[in-house]
Design a protein around this nucleic acid. Structure first.
Lengths: 342, 342
DNA sequence: AAACCTTCTGCACACGTGTGCATTAACTAT
DNA sequence: ATAGTTAATGCACACGTGTGCAGAAGGTTT
């Protein structure tokens, strides 16, 4: 059994209350006994029980993070930003991955509630809204990241996907492309839709028509799915000259399929990604993509939550706060001017 | 404030002990009241307090996981295996990333102890041994993963890096290579050393000499470091014809540098990786690597820990258990027979 | 010397759960 | 009808920590 403040009390000949106060830095206790107690505590290797403390103070100093999958390098970098902010404020992270599984989602929400997490950050774009509201209803401060799907969440931070997609589209248009396709991920909900809409909006602005056959969706963002989708576009009688992929993972698979099929990128086909994950710099050719400020997104979402925890007393239902971060176009070598074929 | 069993007791007109027993499935309580209580509990949206329960039962149903960095896709897949096993047994994960920072490591250990984690899995090959022992000394069951550095940890599970490296070396030798180099990661300690030794051992077995200049180490496993290291090998008067990289990340960067420098892989130079992370299948050319059973490593380490928690009473210091998993050679297109130059 | 203030410490209770023991009610056996 | 057995529930305490309040010790003011 771990040692408690009572053990320290016995050892120093004072009451456990005095020990509690001394270690808590309460100025009521004389400096002399205070330092003596602290010394003994250190010698005995005392570690306070988070459970007991939480029970009494009604706060855990833990914030929960719900994420789609830890495998996804995109989320990893967001997590990194969250952890930095949390750690600095003395908070620990309780991370759970939903794996797109509703049953798992429910279990996660339940666990968060049982653990009495001080707040929750939802980074999963596909996380079901009712489960999120379940947290809100139980009084948990919630910050949603890249989850514009529902306006019921009062605190959110997200990347401007519409703008990002427009930037990419403008880039391709400027290179002379008009036959531009979009490869989406039906599982990522609003995020994919926003990117599609940004593309459409910019095309309309430029007075270009969009071929409905150029819009294709797959059920996830595994590179393998990107790879498989090349078939679809190649079977079109009128092929696109450029393709905007929902994210880097799909683009990486897509590029690979191009190489295998002898389609030269960017000469035959320009390809863009989205997110700028580490590996997008190492593809062949290096991927033109939209650099999303992943670390900042994570960091600021954590800061927003922390701020929320500070003024917990006020009614958070009446306040709204929404922060939008913009990414920037990162031109590498997977896009080029349109070269006439044959 | 969240509702408690006392609230349920008041509502149903019984004592809080009866509620506790009813929800705990104690057969002492009559079936009638039991179901009635359960129904009310559900209606009121009761969520037990993990803190209070832990305090009383002295177990948290949480296992701590210490990892180098969440960014690393290699660790991500191990985490996946751990989570599956843990979830199935009703345990949650408390994940912390050390980021190779000693101060952070100390904080993590302290947090784990304060949280009274039921057990700890250390997945960080570079995690300092004394901090691990600190956990052991405080009675925490510990399982180390890929951490052969010190035999003081009684429960460990690791991949046979020596064997894996030998498999790769044999593969290259069979292709006719004799001028083989090794690109290591000085930060990963024993792991890198084992892979180096596997390489040396197999070379010796084949009667081949190793050029000391062919062994080069960098301080990490970021692809950028792999990319930079090409310079070194190209400046050698007698260049190697094949190179074994410590892991896929380095190999991916290395391949990229080759492409930029006009070095044809595998015609001019054969390159191998290690781990088989997702992206190694999408490089150009696809990477020959050693497929490490990452999921299994994670899963079995969690199972080992769970087993350990079951027979907690016995003195774990007297028992040893070590499990070794072997990976398998995965030949793709970054290696080929030696073709005479010019 | 009595009355007061200041400084420090201990007592006792609370947080939400779980559990040994006593208690009550209901039923069976003589 | 009484004693004995079984089934169901409540009482009271414990886990480790924090905190309002009372109280003790020592010093200062009248």
């Amino acid at each position: 059994m771990a040692i408690t403040i009572k053990d320290i009390a016995k050892r120093t000949g004072v009451s456990h209350s005095t020990v509690s106060r001394a270690l808590g830095g309460n100025s009521l206790i004389s400096e002399a006994t205070s330092t003596r107690i602290r010394k003994v505590a250190r010698e005995m290797g005392y570690q306070p029980s988070a459970a007991a403390r939480s029970l009494k103070t009604n706060q855990t100093k833990v914030i929960g993070v719900i994420v789609n999958s830890i495998d996804d390098p995109f989320f990893s970098e967001i997590l990194f930003g969250i952890e930095d902010a949390a750690q600095q404020a003395g908070y620990s992270l309780f991370i759970a991955a939903s794996q797109y599984d509703p049953i798992r989602e429910q279990k996660i929400v339940q666990t968060m509630m049982e653990q009495r997490t001080d707040g929750v950050i939802i980074c999963s774009s596909s996380f079901s809204a009712d489960k999120g509201r379940q947290l809100l209803a139980n009084g948990f401060p919630v910050v949603v990241v890249n989850y514009k799907a529902n306006e019921n969440f009062n605190y959110s931070i997200y990347h401007d996907d519409l703008d990002g997609s427009q930037q990419l589209t403008r880039h391709l248009l400027a290179l002379g492309h008009t036959k531009i396709a979009y490869l989406g991920n039906s599982k990522s909900g609003r995020t994919s839709l926003d990117r599609l809409n940004g593309f459409k909006k910019e095309m309309r602005k430029a007075g270009e028509k969009i071929n409905p056959a150029y819009i294709y969706e797959v059920g996830g963002s595994d590179p393998a799915l990107g790879k498989e989708s090349l078939h679809y576009f190649m079977n079109l009688s009128d092929r696109p000259t450029a393709i905007i992929c929902f994210n880097d993972m799909l683009a990486i698979g897509f590029l690979h399929a191009c190489r295998q099929s002898g389609i030269r990128v960017p000469d035959d086909l320009s390809v863009t990604g989205f997110d700028n994950i580490t590996f997008s710099a190492y593809t062949s050719p290096p991927l033109t993509t939209l650099d999303q400020p992943k670390y900042s997104i994570g960091n600021e979402s954590a800061q927003l939550l922390l701020e929320l925890l500070g003024k917990k007393i006020e009614n958070q239902n009446n306040t709204h706060k929404e922060k939008v971060l913009k990414g920037s176009l990162l031109v590498r070598n997977s896009t080029s001017t349109l070269t006439p074929k044959e």
